[in-house]
C-alpha cells in the first residue's frame, strides 16, 4: 500500500465511521441474530432451540410460501417498470417551462404525505365495487367495473394503482437529478437542431442515469418487500391473492409466533433480492453515466 493509498484509507474510514458504527450495532447485530434464529425453533417468548436447516426444508413444501412468493414476483414485474416509466415521465413533464410549476410539483407529491391509515380507507372507498368512484368513472365509458379489492383477478392491479399513486417520491428524486444537468448541453444540442425528444433521449436520460439506476435498484428492493399498504388495505385477501412475501413472513413471526421460520423466510428473500439486484446492476453496466468518479 502506498502512502497515498494509506491516507485515502484513513480518510475513507473517517468519513464512513458513523455508518460503520451504525451498520455494526443497529443492523449487523440484529441481522446476524436473525440468521442464527433461521436455524432455530424460536417463538420469541421462549429461548431459541437449534434445529439445523429444518425451517428451510419446511419452506420448500409450504404452499402458502410459494403462493406469497409468486404473488410478490408478479406484482414486482408489473409495478416496477410502470413505476419507473411513470416517475420519469412525470418528472420530465414537470421539468419543462410551465406555469404554476411549484403547484403541480406539490400536487404530484401530495399522495406521499398522506398517513397510511387514511390512505387505506381512501382507496378502499375508491375501489369499492358498488359506490366507488373508479367504477362510477368507468361506467361513463360503458364499462362494468369489477369489485376490485374482493376479486382475485383485480385485487393485485388495484394495489399496483395504489402504488403508482405514491410515485411522487421518485419524481422528486428525478427532479433533483434533472436540475443537475448542465444547461449548456441543451443549448449546444439546440444549436445542432435537436428536437425535444432527441434532447431527452441523448442528453437528459444519460445524464440522470445514476438517479434512474438508484430508483430501479431501490424499487427492486422495495417492491419485493411490499407490506404496509396491502396489509392495511386487503390483509392479504381475497383467498390470498394479495398475500405478499413480507406479509406472510410477518404472520409467521408475529401472529403464528414462528420467528425462526420467519427468519428463514427473510434470508431466502435476501438471496432472491440480492440476485435480482445484481441482475439489475449487470443490466445497467455501460448504461449508467457518472460525470464524477
Amino acid at each position: 500500500m502506498t502512502r497515498e493509498q494509506k491516507r485515502n484509507l484513513v480518510k475513507g474510514l473517517l468519513f464512513t465511521a458513523p455508518w460503520i458504527l451504525g451498520l455494526s450495532i443497529f443492523t449487523m447485530i440484529p441481522a446476524l441474530m436473525s440468521l442464527y434464529y433461521s436455524f432455530c425453533d424460536y417463538s420469541v417468548l421462549n429461548p431459541p432451540v437449534f434445529i439445523g436447516a429444518k425451517n428451510f426444508t419446511s419452506l420448500s413444501t409450504d404452499a402458502v410460501f410459494w403462493k406469497s412468493l409468486n404473488n410478490t414476483l408478479i406484482y414486482a414485474v408489473v409495478a416496477l417498470p410502470l413505476g419507473t416509466v411513470m416517475g420519469i415521465a412525470l418528472a420530465l413533464l414537470l421539468n419543462q417551462q410551465i406555469i404554476a410549476r411549484p403547484l403541480f410539483r406539490t400536487i404530484f407529491f401530495l399522495p406521499s404525505l398522506v398517513p397510511l391509515v387514511a390512505l387505506a380507507i381512501l382507496w378502499q372507498w375508491i375501489f369499492n365495487g358498488e359506490f366507488g368512484v373508479l367504477n362510477h368513472a368507468l361506467s361513463w365509458f360503458g364499462i362494468d367495473g369489477p369489485n376490485w379489492l374482493t376479486d382475485t383477478t383485480w385485487a393485485k392491479p388495484a394495489l399496483v394503482i395504489t402504488g403508482l399513486w405514491g410515485v411522487g417520491n421518485s419524481v422528486v428524486i428525478y427532479l433533483a437529478g434533472l436540475q443537475d444537468v448542465p444547461r449548456d448541453f441543451y443549448e449546444a444540442a439546440r444549436v445542432d437542431g435537436a428536437n425535444w425528444w432527441q434532447q431527452t433521449r441523448h442528453i437528459t436520460i444519460p445524464m440522470i442515469s445514476p438517479v434512474i439506476y438508484f430508483n430501479v435498484i431501490m424499487g427492486t428492493i422495495g417492491v419485493l418487500q411490499i407490506f404496509a399498504v396491502p396489509y392495511v388495505m386487503t390483509g392479504g385477501g381475497p383467498a390470498r391473492a394479495t398475500l405478499f412475501y413480507t406479509m406472510y413472513l410477518f404472520d409467521q413471526a408475529f401472529r403464528y409466533l414462528n420467528m425462526g421460520y420467519a427468519c428463514a423466510m427473510a434470508w431466502v428473500l435476501f438471496v432472491i433480492v440480492a440476485g435480482l439486484t445484481l441482475f439489475a446492476h449487470r443490466m445497467s453496466k455501460g448504461h449508467v453515466y457518472y460525470g464524477g468518479a
Binding site: 441481522a31 436473525s34 428492493i221 418487500q225 412475501y245 413472513l249 420467528m259 434470508w267 435476501f270 440480492a274
Partner: peptide, 10 residues
C-alpha cells in the same frame, strides 16, 4: 445488502 433483509425479523 442490509436493505434486503425484511425489517420484521430485525
Amino acid at each position: 445488502g442490509t436493505m434486503m433483509i425484511p425489517f420484521p425479523v430485525l
